[in-house]
Amino acid sequence: MTVSRPRAGRVLFGFALVIAWAGQMHLMLRVGKGPIASESLLGALAGPAGVTFLSVAFLSSLAAFVLKFREATAGLCAFGVLWLAAAVEASLFTVSQAIHHNKLLPVGCLAGYLLGLLVTQNLEEHQREQVAWHAACGVAGAIYAISAYSKLDQSGASWFQARTLGLLIGERQDAMVEVFSLVRRYVVARPALCSGLAVFAVFVEMLGVVFVDPRFRRPYALLTVGLHLGILALLGYFYPAWMVMMPVLAFLPPADEPRPAAGGVPSVGEPQGGEQPT
């Protein structure tokens, strides 16, 4: 079993997962042991000792995954710890069991990647990584598309009315960051702008389907970064892991062929420039 020097895309793929993990652990420590967590096993894992234990398990598994040391096993271990942490996090909330969304795009991409690895065991290593990377991109695109579906399914055309986004922003207009308050009050005072932004957001999310095609990944990734900056300014939801993962998937894919190492022996896992959109 060898460990190869990871290419930049793999490292940053892991970095996006670390960002998501850090956000989740911060949330768990910030909320503390709520009334539901109490004395249960999940409650024990919600405290500082549990967070430390989970973090060591996750980060060591993730490092092995990034370094391709027993890649699939390490990735599955990292995913298992993420699943456990999500259960702990959900136990902290008494009404909404919704799991903090910041981690879901990187975790979904990891799940897609692992699935791609597991179903391509008869291929060469660099081909397996390519298939896995494409699968991760497919999941990322689906996450945006399902977000649009949810809005249209639950709100229908009323999602595009000014009052929908107006109320959402209005509930957050007293932000602790003054510039955000100013932006939010400016937008709320302009109903046509509220409607236009609601249409734009759903349109961008529906376009998630284009992320399956490598030719459209780069422009779409940039579009999503802009979307998230707007969401941060107007609604206060900051998803840094998404803002890292989308450009990484689009701009740093695995190379088409393994680069020959010194002596002409192919060395899998080293950068070769990546595939270019045509």
């Binding site: 298939v131 699968a135 999941v139 695109g141 689906a142 399902i146 579906y149 095609d213």
Partner: peptide, 10 residues
């Protein structure tokens, strides 16, 4: 692979 993963997750 991207199309199948998209459909599976969606």
């Amino acid at each position: 692979a991207a199309v199948l993963a998209f459909l599976l997750y969606y």
